[in-house]
Simulated assay, not measured.
Amino acid sequence: MSHPHLATIIEQATTGNEDRRTAIEPLVFFRREEQAPPCICMIEPSIVLVAQGAKRMWIGDEGFLYDPERFLITSLDLPANSEVVEASRESPCVGLALKLDMQMLAELIALGSLPPPPVRADQHSVGLGTLTPDLLQPLERLLALLNEPDSIPVLAPLILREIHYRLLQSDQAARLWQIVAAGSQSQRVAKAIDWLKQNYSKPLRIDELAGRVQMSTSTLHHHFRKLTSMSPLQYQKWLRLNEAKRLMLNSALDATSAAFQVGYESPSQFSREYSRLFGLPPKRDIEGLRSQVR
């Protein structure tokens, strides 16, 4: 199964293996022309839809396979591994990622016209939803707007609101209610993640972070790991290592300078942890990446 109309729009807007931003700010297209093993990525709260082909998202040791019948939904900023399962040059894996607006979801819930979901979501920030016609139709209209650039500022916000409304009527509604509910454990973990993203280079004191989000240390550890498959310390380490990789690749920093800039006090510890995450020491990894784009 595929969605030929969506696939055609995305294929025409992309080439090779790439992620491409669109004129609609929260909307990104992706295209992959071959199967590929899992690669490290950070996924924002979003829905990810494959119009043709199939992908699998790994969160910790758990894999989520999504294809034209099922969309992936994430409600937190999560370190993950993305795997291309079904793709070829003749029939590339193409799809879209649409960043979710949590404030919009909260506003729609506050209106009171949507009944609460009949069942609670599992304690996970990732799920697979069924792509229904009610959700597919506004997504198709959103993509059609790319051919009417002058209409995007007026009509895109209306269609995005409709998409969020449909998500709150989908089989993933409970997951979204859980994350936007004021005072919920999921919302407190989301606040902890926001703090870590803004302060990853600072020393992490778990008791202080727990106090910031009004949780006990043990409760923060439990729910953080449940939702992200990581401890807060592992999450901070992931952020530091990926930012260091970006600095070495894009700003030509050497490994020691990058290590100090992201908060490491020991270059040797940085090198060990970098090799463990990326499979190669920092210098060899960056040299390999640069050689690929020459």
Rank of each mutant, 00 (worst) to 15 (best):
H3L: 12
H3R: 08
P4D: 11
T8E: 15
E11D: 13
T14E: 06
T15H: 10
G16N: 05
D19M: 14
I24F: 09
L27M: 11
V28Y: 04
R32W: 15
R32F: 15
P37G: 13
C41A: 12
C41N: 03
I43Y: 00
E44T: 10
S46C: 09
I47K: 06
V48D: 00
V48M: 04
L49E: 06
V50S: 04
V50H: 09
A51P: 03
A54F: 01
A54W: 00
A54G: 12
M57R: 00
E62Y: 03
F64D: 00
L65Y: 09
D67I: 03
D67N: 14
E69V: 00
I73P: 01
T74V: 05
S75L: 04
S82Q: 14
E83H: 06
R89Y: 00
E90C: 06
S91Y: 10
P92G: 10
C93T: 11
G95H: 06
L96T: 01
A97W: 01
L98Q: 06
M104Q: 12
A106W: 05
A106Q: 14
A106I: 08
A106G: 10
L108E: 11
A110V: 01
L111C: 10
P116L: 13
R120G: 05
A121S: 12
A121V: 00
A121W: 02
A121T: 01
V126Y: 02
T130A: 11
L131W: 10
P133H: 07
P133S: 13
D134Q: 13
D134H: 10
L136H: 08
L136R: 12
Q137I: 06
E140F: 00
L143V: 11
D150V: 15
P153Q: 09
V154L: 14
I159T: 08
E162I: 09
I163W: 08
R166C: 11
R166I: 05
L167A: 03
L168P: 02
L168S: 04
Q169D: 04
S170N: 04
D171A: 02
D171E: 00
A174L: 07
R175Q: 12
R175S: 12
A181C: 01
S184W: 05
S184P: 07
R188W: 12
V189L: 05
A190D: 10
A192Q: 05
I193V: 15
W195E: 13
Y200G: 07
Y200P: 11
S201H: 09
L204N: 06
L204V: 02
I206L: 14
D207Y: 11
L209W: 09
M215H: 03
M215S: 02
M215E: 02
L220D: 02
H221Y: 15
H222A: 11
H222F: 12
H223F: 10
H223L: 08
F224A: 00
L227H: 03
T228Y: 04
Q236G: 08
L239H: 04
L239I: 05
R240K: 15
R240L: 09
L241R: 02
N242H: 08
K245V: 01
M248Q: 07
N250S: 15
A252V: 14
L253Y: 15
L253S: 03
T256I: 05
F260T: 04
Q261F: 08
V262W: 09
G263Q: 01
S266V: 09
Q269P: 12
S271M: 13
S271Q: 13
E273M: 02
E273L: 13
Y274R: 03
R276T: 15
P281C: 10
E287T: 08
L289V: 04
L289W: 08
V293N: 11
V293Y: 09
V293I: 11
